[in-house]
Design a protein around this nucleic acid. Structure first.
Lengths: 116, 116
DNA sequence: GTTACTATATGCAAGCTACATATAGTAAGG
DNA sequence: CCTTACTATATGTAGCTTGCATATAGTAAC
């Protein structure tokens, strides 16, 4: 897979950033990532599993992660995702975006408090 | 206009919340709102004017704002928007959503710092 | 052999975004 | 007068994203 003209897209829930954040610490598969996101409270609302899988495949296409099938024969096969160097860079950019987004939210709240 | 089963939708840039925030203080028209958003630093990226107009019409349909044509005969006609009581309630809900979103961002950043 | 859970994946309708375009009034410059 | 530029509102549309439904397949319990 290739095509690495990556740019941050703020899809409201920062799913890509959250996934990179978890994969930074541990390589694992999609279904497990869903649990991690909920356990680490990295999502506000329910994430549809199909969205998560498609996001991971898109991230692989953008070379932010790589994947391989788990060697284990137990249970259904698992596609294990690992973060790449490009993924670590992207995560760094994402964190900047998030900090900027946080400042924006604070600005809106301040404007709200001012006006009431 | 009617149809007030409003729910907060997190379109990434919180345009609706920003508009309600400004209209809370001052009734004005769409083109001027674009300036206000930029001057108050309530937007990170450029807002397309067509998106702003459609957002305002959708908000009117949801009864968050009302509009009337400016009486002034000078220049092209202006559609003046005013916030409604429903709009003030919606803004209150939006602020809660924003606070929650801010906490989420802080959580993600914390997870990021932890893992590097 | 049917139900439930883990695990991955695709089809599709509805909604959203950004760009292009259309309209119309005012005002300045040549 | 004609063109250009700026204010002001609005619609058409292609492309993308989201969420729901559905398909598949393995394991395990009842």
């Amino acid at each position: 897979m290739q095509e690495s003209n990556w740019q941050p897209r703020g899809g409201g829930r920062f799913l890509e950033a959250c996934l990179l954040c978890v994969l930074q610490e541990e390589s694992t598969h999609g279904y497990a990532l869903l649990d991690h996101l909920e356990r680490f409270e990295l999502v506000e609302t329910h994430i549809d599993i199909s969205v998560l899988y498609r996001t991971l495949r898109a991230m692989e296409k953008a070379t932010l992660v790589t994947s391989h099938w788990s060697e284990s024969d137990l249970g259904p096969r698992k596609r294990i995702y690992s973060i790449t160097e490009a993924g670590r860079s992207a995560l760094g950019l994402w964190i900047e975006v998030l900090k900027s987004r946080k400042r924006l939210i604070e600005q809106i709240i301040q404007q709200y408090e001012k006006g009431r």
